[in-house]
Nucleic acid binder design. Sequence first.
DNA 1: TCTGGGGTCCTAGGACCC
DNA 2: TCTGGGGTCCTAGGACCC
Length: 431
Amino acid sequence: MKAIVDCNNFYCSCERLFVPQLDRKPIVVLSNNDGCVISRSDEAKTSGVQMGVPFFEVRSLLQQEGITWFSSNYELYGDLSWRVMETLRLLMGEARVEVYSVDEAFIDLDDMGTEALAALGLSIRERVEQWTGIRVSVGVGPTKTLAKLANRLAKKDKLRTRCVMVLSDLPAIETALRKTAVGDLWGIGRRYARKLQEQWSIYDGWQLASVSEEFAHAHLGGVVGKRLVRELRGIPSKEMEEERTQKKMIATTRMFGRKVYALTEIKEAIATYVARAAEKLRRQYSAATELSVFIIAHEEGSRFGKAYSDHCILTNPSADTGVLLHKALALVETLYRSGPAYKKAGVLLGGLVPASSRQASLFDQGEATDDRAGLMLAIDNINFSLPLQSASRHDSILRFAATGTNRAWKMKQARRSARYTTRWRELPVVH
DNA sequence: TCTGGGGTCCTAGGACCC
DNA sequence: TCTGGGGTCCTAGGACCC
């Protein structure tokens, strides 16, 4: 058996933790640039705020219903996520826990009896809340996919289930599948849901569990679909995975806070994203061999706009902000056309290799790479430890000049809460 | 008339997830 | 006026190899 532990309305719960007056009050958290709603408290859901709606569309509803909104504060969420995961590791043993996302973890229960699972789930939920203040739901099933389903049903009826549901016997699994629409299953997105309904009249989980593996292979993305159908039948086909600490790709992309026309501003933004991506790269001791840059221009009648992108290969893998900046800015120069309003840009680092085992290039001029690595380490240490001036438009103390000074393109974050748990100056104060 | 049979590597694109 | 950001896996098809 496998369990999944999932934090309830995670971002909202994080915000509420430090403003207890908001307990039981409706709140929402917005995406970057204060664009759309990405987390809602139960009360906000009841008030009819939909997931993913643009902020400007629900603004008046929020005011009318007295719903408090927050800009997103990823530093806070990241730290609280770590606390929840650490609690699970302490309770269950590190080897059993697979962190799946910022607010979810799978737990391997394969060698445990099926009798006490509900009690175990309940004790996990209580302990995590006691130690971190975050409420979680626990779903248990013979496969990861059925555990996810159990979790979903536990959340839907919190009072009755006390946020814990175990699907261990066949009748319970059948009932659960029958009342779940295909689109609500883990692994069935919007596209497949539509296709299943329109072409084959498959509407619920039980129907999908009954199709042949050949059918799933042919119509639901090959082996992916086949695994999904097997999982629904209780045959484990997605096993627990080793903790993935090394990312294979690192991206930093943002919408601008307003329309941007000038090349100089776009270069500042790209430089800022490169610096951020390179930091992430160094934090996992990797170097990149591939760098891509894209900019997106506003286009009349198109929601997403028109993208221009290009990439280059680094013969000498690098995690040096200066080196990556140089390449990225050259790419922007060739991509940029004056005229259109740009609304978004991004940087992607790929082909990641361990920084320690970098292949020396044949054409390497014997650059003083070690000195530069030391410089990067020094910059990171200073930026991660020193407090920021709160009025600054910057997120770092030490930075490359190319990242600009005025930075009028920066995203909107009108209501970001304090980083209570990660910055000395922003510690909550008890009066 | 007839024109092999494997392999591997790479890339672009599609689908999904939170 | 205003619609997020960051990932993963898989497949198909082309280039190339023996």
